[in-house]
């Protein structure tokens, strides 16, 4: 009997995942950090009160340490420009600018979008407890559990999946809403175009 228990213990130990830190470091090493990353996105949002998911698609530009341009093309055009200091939404010909200092909570949540897209694990760790899982030689998955505070009030968890880049983000909000974003057609660059730089500098 004792032997069986000991054997069982050994088996359980073997099945336990390796120390998370090393896997997390491995994931961080796999994610590339280009100066500029462009691509397309497909987003499905399941919002409480809506029977059908809200589907949208468009293009994004992620400029390291500068910000994000999020251009929705379908079902209608709108622009989200996100920098460290401000957030602006343009749709239907009108633009709303929000100063990060005025709405720190909103700014903080949007800043996470920036970190999620870039797979910036070091920054995400400030607000989330992260469990990494290596799927094969290239692919990985991260489970983000918000630490108590602002993010715990907004999200129950966030899941990321990818290889050289983040390819899939799933957001589970506290109010039951769920957002799934798939990224593809990645294109790395060293510089922003003049137009992109101008929009981010606004």
């Amino acid at each position: 009997m004792m032997r069986v228990l000991a054997l069982l213990g050994l088996l359980l130990l073997a099945a336990a995942p390796l120390p998370a830190a090393s896997e997390l470091a491995e994931v961080a090493a796999r994610i590339e950090q280009p100066q500029v990353l462009r691509g397309r996105f497909e987003q499905d949002k399941q919002v409480a009160g809506f029977r059908k998911p809200l589907h949208s698609s468009g293009r994004f530009v992620l400029a390291r340490a500068r910000g994000v341009l999020w251009s929705t093309e379908q079902p209608f055009a709108s622009q989200l420009v996100l920098t460290g200091a401000s957030l602006s939404v343009e749709s239907g010909g009108s633009t709303r600018n929000i100063d990060a200092a005025d709405e720190p909570a909103l700014a903080a949540i949007h800043a996470v979008l920036f970190d999620l897209l870039g797979g910036d694990i070091a920054k995400l760790q400030a607000n989330f407890t992260i469990v990494a899982q290596l799927l094969d030689a290239d692919r990985w998955r991260l489970q983000l559990q918000p630490k108590p505070g602002l993010f715990a009030q907004a999200f129950t968890r966030i899941e990321l999946e990818g290889a050289r880049h983040v390819e899939r983000v799933q957001l589970f909000e506290v109010n039951g809403d769920r957002t799934e974003i798939a990224f593809r057609e990645f294109d790395q660059a060293a510089e922003l175009t003049a137009d992109e730089a101008a929009r981010l500098a606004q």
Binding site: W70, T72, S78, V89, S91, Q153, E173
Partner: peptide, 25 residues
């Protein structure tokens, strides 16, 4: 009303809307 509607739709389709405390309705 048109401006309000455009703004609400844009927010609905953003990756993060403004954090909601209550359901849309």
């Amino acid at each position: 009303i048109e401006d309000w509607s455009a703004r609400v739709l844009a927010e609905l389709y953003q990756p993060f809307g403004a954090p909601r405390l209550l359901p849309f309705a």
